[in-house]
Amino acid sequence: MSEKPAGLDAEPVISVRDLETHFFTDEGIVRAVDGVNFDVHPGTTMGIVGESGCGKSITAKSILQIVEAPGRIVNGEINYRRGSGETVNLLNYESGSGNMRAIRGGDISMIFQEPMTSFSGLHTFGNQIDEALRLHTNLAKQERFDLAVDWLARVGIPNPVQRMHEYPFRFSGGQLQRAMIAMAMCTNPRVLIADEPTTALDVTTQAQILDLLQRMQEENDMAILFITHDLGVISEIADEVTVMYLGKVVESGPVFSFFDEPKHPYSRALQTSIPSMFTSSRERLPSISGSIPHPQNRPSGCAFHPRCQSFMEGTCDVGEPELVSVNEEQEVSCFLYEER
């Protein structure tokens, strides 16, 4: 076991409680995020793992209140601990209020999955990074320019001064992702939300970006909320893991416990069914039967029960399991672990 990062014992910088974000569509209400709880500690990385439709991206967008209509946060608290030690519930701020805008992009920054579509094609890169600095710092124009150039150089973009005057189409995918990281980092945020930042990139570029994020974290003691479906990336970068399935947290705990002793049948099935460079060639992997249900037809009881190896009739399809502690560090929501 490696030593635990010191930050895990510190007060969480973000604490999400009972978050519910629903989408009010013509076909009915989709409970995209349905009672989610987790903490993010300073200087550490919380990995949120899940597949399509599990609500991981909506959870991230809920923190910054950038959920698009018809989605709406209907319940919960997002407690943010400021540098001064004061804790505020971000959901008490209106999405468009000055307080929220100061936090969004200032204290808490976000980088997105598709670097190619996250920039405006009509403005130079320098213009776009300057906007973030104009909103969140009191620096003069030349100081902002120098700071932006400095950040571009730090994320490894060659000729940063020249690049400031270029449009995003001149950048490669990996460069754009690095530029987006520079833009998110230039305001010196205390929390970085990274939503699948490497999914669209090649493995070699992915390795560069993961290295960069880890270096930035060490330098700034920044907390990272890292959202991904890729367990390999989680094993490389996360200190703690929260696993989501159809809008709910099914398991959470430190990364080592998650890989050594996954508790929830979904976590276990995920780990055994994904090929890795260490499984032998031409081996048949145990596969998870069925597919992820459409959020409109959420199965009764535990949402994973139709695909679960440990399905118990009359229990799993009737009641919903609660997230309970199974030991000092791990929490799981599964009837296998509930006292009955």
């Binding site: 076991m1 490696s2 490669s172 990996g174 460069q175 090649d202 493995v203 070699t204 992915q206 390795a207 560069q208 993961l210 290295d211 890729d230 367990l231 390999g232 990336v233 094993s235 490389e236 996360a238 990364v255 080592f256 890989f259 890795s276 460079m277 260490f278």
Partner: peptide
């Protein structure tokens, strides 16, 4: 070698210094 080394390791105990390729394709 660089390509293989970039593949994330399946367990956190195998985290090593990656052989990160410099530059672009």
């Amino acid at each position: 070698a660089a390509l293989m080394s970039s593949v994330p390791k399946p367990h956190p105990s195998q985290r090593t210094k990656r052989y990160v390729l410099e530059g672009e394709v």
